[in-house]
């Protein structure tokens, strides 16, 4: 049975804004770290070793080489950790817990570099250098448009050289991009109702054939609501506006950036279909 999610099928912007807001909800990294420490303690480290051995992953050699795996500790959680790795590929999840223990020698950077697994909206393992520093939660996320403006393509997925900021705390959807810009964020003006109104105006402009006006409205919207609940909807509309204005290359580029940053977003199928249509012209 295939049923579309309401977030992508509803025509009500208010409902969509509410549903989208759920994506940023979650425990703080500190809470997860605390819980993991309380529940598993050093056993987690043993769990990593056991998991690696069980899965036959390259982690085994790294864990052994790092000497971080404690030996002889009763591994309370070991079966679960091993199961998590075998059944759901949650090795990064486990390693993240370890990585957050700044007082323990761990192998997080190597692991996150070799296994770019991102749990759904979850917390990613920061490189060791960042482990003892607070996550850059307040940085304004770089938008697709800004990414597109750069001459050097930048992978939106976090890597060892681009510390991930996708903490469980807000901001939600846009936080999928790494905080690449240190410029101060513009003053946030983010009323949901204002944002919906702005989105409607941009849609109407595009529907009546005024693609340039739509783009200008979307630019203003981005400035006014940099972390808005409809920011991804606005990016999709921007792609449509560029395509409608004849700037096909720009539209294709933005589509690819969108799909790379948000492959599982409810808008992704639509963007893929637009991309296919534009590429086949």
């Amino acid at each position: 049975m295939t049923v579309q999610r309401l977030v992508s099928s509803t025509s009500d912007d208010f409902e969509r804004a509410l549903l989208r807001s759920a994506r940023g909800e979650g425990p703080s990294p500190q809470a997860v770290r605390k819980a993991a420490a309380a529940l598993t303690g050093a056993a987690v480290l043993t769990g990593v070793g056991a998991a690696a051995a069980a899965s036959g992953a390259s982690l085994a050699s790294k864990a052994a080489a790092s000497g971080a795996v404690t030996k002889g500790i009763v591994a309370l959680m070991t079966p679960w950790v091993a199961a998590g790795v075998v059944t759901s590929g949650a090795v990064i999840g486990v390693v993240t817990v370890v990585a957050h223990r700044a007082d323990v020698e761990v192998l997080a950077p190597e692991v996150s570099a070799s296994a770019p697994y991102r749990p759904r909206g979850g917390v990613l393992a920061p490189p060791r250098a960042a482990a003892s520093q607070p996550a850059p939660e307040s940085s304004a996320p770089e938008t697709i448009e800004e990414l597109a403006a750069r001459s050097v393509p930048i992978a939106p997925q976090p890597s060892a050289s681009a510390p991930a900021s996708a903490s469980a705390a807000p901001p939600p959807a846009p936080s999928a991009s790494a905080p690449l810009s240190s410029a101060p964020a513009p003053e946030v003006r983010s009323s949901v109702t204002d944002e919906i109104r702005a989105m409607d105006q941009a849609r109407e402009a595009l529907a009546s054939g005024k693609s340039q006006e739509a783009l200008a409205l979307l630019d203003r919207m981005r400035h006014d609501f940099p972390r808005g609940a409809l920011s991804l909807d606005a990016e999709v509309l921007r792609i449509e506006a560029y395509a409608a204005s004849g700037r096909r290359v720009r539209a294709i580029y933005l589509s690819e950036q969108f799909l790379q940053a948000h492959p599982n977003d409810p808008h992704a199928p639509r963007v893929r279909s637009m991309l296919a249509a534009m590429s086949n012209r």
């Binding site: 769990g47 999840g93 979850g122």
Partner: peptide, 10 residues
């Protein structure tokens, strides 16, 4: 396991 499921349970 704790980390991978903690957020979901929370």
């Amino acid at each position: 396991m704790v980390h991978s499921h903690y957020r979901l349970v929370w």
